[in-house]
């Protein structure tokens, strides 16, 4: 008797569930359009944007990272239309507020991130106030990679062509490319991946006409990270090919 009851309980529940589902289906045609509207309304989009670091000297790079949910059309003032989620480097010459607007079926969301630039605007031509090193940094910018890949991203292509044109017009400068990875995964594998990243950046510069013997490549893997927090933003900062003047 007892055993029979135990078996019957789930069965009864199941029957009840099926009949409930049946009821709902049957009553649906009776609903007016007004009643159905709230159920199908598109969710309101959400948006976030960060700029790291938040204060820089003129000529330094800032990494903008943004993320939106339920948005179809996203733009950032001064940059234009951008993917719904992304990362991009910028070099603001003066203090800037990056204002992001995300339009979606459910409305509009906005977010902004401010970067304070502490010295007079940097220019891309030599001035008396900039050392060769500073000028190099202002003009040859690092590129970033997606996780566990060494493909050159589309946002890195334009950075690289800018880097190449500066190196092309300064033929005496030699460059070291460091390959970096985020903190996740194995040291040995990341060292190999960092090598692939730095070599990919080197190959892109060589393709753009820079002599291979002007470029030295070192993989740092997980050693010497730029950022040490365990966040996606920080990991993105560390997945990079970093350019510096070869002083050797």
């Amino acid at each position: 008797m007892n055993r029979r009851t135990r078996i019957m309980v789930p069965a009864v529940l199941l029957v009840a569930l099926i009949s409930l589902a049946g009821c709902k289906k049957k009553s649906e045609p009776n609903l007016t359009p007004a009643e159905t509207a709230p159920a199908t309304a598109a969710p309101e989009p959400t948006a976030q944007i960060t700029a790291k670091p938040g204060s820089i000297s003129a000529g330094d790079q800032v990494v903008l990272s943004w993320k939106t949910v339920d948005a179809t059309d996203v733009s950032i003032d001064g940059i234009g239309k951008v993917p719904t989620t992304g990362v991009q480097t910028v070099t603001p010459s003066e203090s800037t507020t990056y204002h992001l607007v995300a339009h979606g079926d459910g409305g509009t969301a906005e977010a902004s991130a401010r970067v304070v630039v502490s010295t007079p605007p940097a220019v891309a031509v030599p001035t008396n106030t900039m050392t060769a090193e500073e000028e190099f940094k202002a003009n040859v910018q690092d590129i970033f990679y997606d996780y566990d890949t060494y493909d050159i991203r589309s946002d890195a292509q334009s950075t690289l062509s800018h880097d190449a044109s500066y190196l092309d017009s300064h033929p005496s400068i030699k460059v070291v490319i460091g390959g970096y990875c985020d903190e996740r995964g194995s040291d040995e594998y990341n060292l190999a991946l960092g090598q692939n990243r730095a070599d990919a950046a080197k190959n892109a510069l060589v393709t753009a006409g820079i002599a291979a013997d002007r470029i030295r490549v070192i993989s740092y893997g997980k050693e010497k990270p730029f950022c040490s927090e365990s966040t996606e933003e920080c990991w993105q900062q560390n997945r990079r090919a970093g350019f510096s003047m070869d002083q050797k």
Partner: peptide, 8 residues
């Protein structure tokens, strides 16, 4: 009967 088979 139907419910019992489901239960098993």
């Amino acid at each position: 009967m139907h419910g019992m088979r489901l239960g098993y």
